[in-house]
Each structure stands twice: as C-alpha cells, then as structure tokens.
Computed example of a mutant assay.
Amino acid sequence: MGQHGDHAREVLLDAAEELFATNGIDAVSNRRIAERAGTANHSAVAYHFGGRDELLHALIGRHAADTALRREALVSNLADDAGVHDLLACLILPWVEHLASLPLPSWRARFVNQMRTVPSMHEVLSRSAVANPLIETLVGRIEAELGTISRTALYGRSWILGSMVLGVCAEYEARVQDGTEPANWTGVGYFLIDSCAGMLSAPVTHPGDFISRPAPLYLP
C-alpha cells in the first residue's frame, strides 16, 4: 500500500481508538472516525480496512506483538515450580507495561474495556484469547496450583479477574490523563497481581453453579 497508505491507516486507527474509548463501540460511526482522522473521504474505513469488523480486528491486534514479546520474556525466566503470584505476573505485567509505554494521552485500556462490555464483540475477544497459547499455558498452570479450588469456582473467578484487570486499567488511564493520578503503572500492576492472587486462592464458602462452563479469559 505504500507509506502514505500505512500512515493513513495509522491515523484512522488512532482516531477510532480514541472515539471508541470515550464514546463506546456502537455509538461511533465510520464517518465520524474518518472526520476525526481529518480526511474528507467518509469511506476511508471501508477503503483501508474493508469494513467495521476488520477495523476492530486491526485495533485488537495493533499492539499484540509488543505485549507478546514482554510476556515471552517473563515466561522464559519462570521457575518450574513458580507459584500463583509469579504466574499471574506473566499474565498481567505485559499488558500493564505496554500501557505504561504508550505516549500520553493514551486510549488503549479504555478501548479494550469498551470492547469487553459489548456483547457483539465477545466473539472477537474470545477468538483472540483462544489464539494465544502462552496465555492458555499460564492459565493451566495456575489452575494446577489451585487444585483445591473447584473448576466451577475458578471459571467464575477467572471471569472476575479479566473484568477487574481491564476495568481498573481503563479507569486508571483516564485518571492519568486528567491529572488526578500520577502515572505509576508498575504500582498498578503489582496491586492487581496481589489482588488477583488473593481472589483466586480464597476459600470457597458456598459451592454453587455461578458459572458452570468455561468463561473465556481475555487479557491482551
């Protein structure tokens, strides 16, 4: 497509991520994205991406390589007998460190959180999670470490874990932007690791069927 086309795509992705993050996925039209990107071609999204779904897939995968490299580096240093805390660090820190690396203002955490809240986007996120074997391996090792917790309880807690990590990061990103919080993403990362470790390993006081089948855990 050439450098001009690549630049146009990036500008459209920037515009879409900001608008989706601040307004929600379904509230933003392709035309509005094009206008925010500064182009008079209201068909720019269709021209450069083929359609709405392709744009969203491009946004989800936009920074996947950076996060994957960070996760691979952490996993390569894991001990064979690593516990829940260290395994969770490999899940959570790559995402948080990626957010810390973005120029301000950033919209990434809020965009991903918006994707999570839209039912029509669940399949997109689920496919992204299934396509990440390293995350699957880490989740499997965490389940093995928590062998005394029932599978049903772990399904439900994994759902909470994903919602908590993405939700906290989205709110923190907004606070950093408006100046109400200093940018201390490392602190946020370890706070989330500690919180998730405590939640996953907590005793089960009432057996039930809150979630009786696997709930996809999505972490970028």
Rank of each mutant, 00 (worst) to 15 (best):
His7Ile: 15
Ala8Met: 13
Ala8Phe: 09
Glu10Leu: 07
Val11Met: 05
Leu12Val: 09
Leu12Lys: 03
Ala15Lys: 03
Glu17Ile: 06
Phe20Gln: 11
Ala21Met: 08
Ala21Ser: 14
Ile25Leu: 14
Asn30Thr: 14
Asn30Val: 10
Asn30Leu: 13
Arg31Ser: 14
Arg31Gly: 12
Arg32Trp: 08
Arg32Ile: 10
Arg36Leu: 14
Ala40Val: 11
Asn41Lys: 13
His42Leu: 15
Ala44Asp: 14
Ala44Gln: 14
Ala44Trp: 10
Val45Ala: 06
Val45Lys: 06
His48Lys: 12
Gly50Phe: 10
Gly51Asp: 05
Arg52Gly: 05
Asp53Pro: 06
Leu55Cys: 11
Leu56Asn: 01
Leu56Arg: 00
His57Cys: 11
Ala58Glu: 00
Ile60Trp: 15
Ile60Thr: 14
Arg62Trp: 07
His63Asp: 15
Ala65Trp: 05
Ala65Pro: 00
Ala65Cys: 05
Ala65Tyr: 01
Arg70Glu: 13
Arg71Phe: 02
Ala73Gln: 13
Val75Lys: 12
Val75His: 13
Asp80Ser: 15
Asp80Asn: 07
Asp81His: 06
His85Ile: 06
Asp86Val: 09
Leu87Ala: 08
Cys90Val: 12
Cys90Trp: 09
Leu91Asn: 05
Ile92Glu: 03
Ile92Met: 04
Trp95Asp: 07
Trp95Gln: 05
Val96Arg: 02
Val96Asp: 02
Ala100Val: 11
Ser101Gly: 06
Ser101Ile: 05
Pro103Tyr: 01
Pro103His: 00
Ser106Phe: 04
Ser106Cys: 08
Trp107Ser: 06
Trp107Ile: 00
Arg108Glu: 13
Ala109Ser: 09
Asn113Met: 12
Thr117Gln: 13
Ser120Thr: 01
Ser120Lys: 04
Met121Pro: 00
Met121Cys: 12
His122Met: 08
His122Cys: 03
Val124Ala: 15
Val124Pro: 02
Ser126Glu: 11
Ser126Lys: 04
Arg127Gln: 01
Ser128Cys: 01
Ala129Val: 03
Val130Lys: 00
Leu134Pro: 01
Ile135Thr: 10
Leu138Phe: 12
Arg141Ala: 10
Arg141Gln: 03
Ile142Trp: 03
Ala144Lys: 09
Glu145Thr: 00
Thr148Phe: 10
Thr152Asn: 07
Leu154Tyr: 01
Gly156His: 08
Arg157Glu: 04
Ile160Gly: 02
Ile160Asn: 03
Met164Pro: 03
Met164His: 14
Met164Val: 13
Val165His: 05
Leu166His: 10
Ala170Gln: 00
Tyr172Lys: 03
Glu173Val: 08
Glu173Trp: 05
Ala174Cys: 02
Val176Met: 04
Gln177Ser: 08
Gln177Gly: 10
Asp178Glu: 14
Asp178His: 14
Gly179Ile: 06
Pro182Phe: 06
Ala183Trp: 01
Trp185Pro: 12
Trp185Cys: 08
Thr186Asn: 14
Gly187Arg: 04
Val188Trp: 00
Gly189His: 07
Gly189Val: 11
Tyr190Asn: 06
Tyr190Thr: 06
Phe191Val: 15
Leu192Trp: 10
Ser195Ala: 15
Ser195Pro: 06
Ser201Ala: 15
Gly208Arg: 15
Asp209Thr: 14
Asp209Lys: 12
Pro214Arg: 04
Pro216Met: 07
Tyr218Phe: 15
Leu219Gly: 04
Leu219Val: 05
Pro220Tyr: 08
Pro220Ala: 11
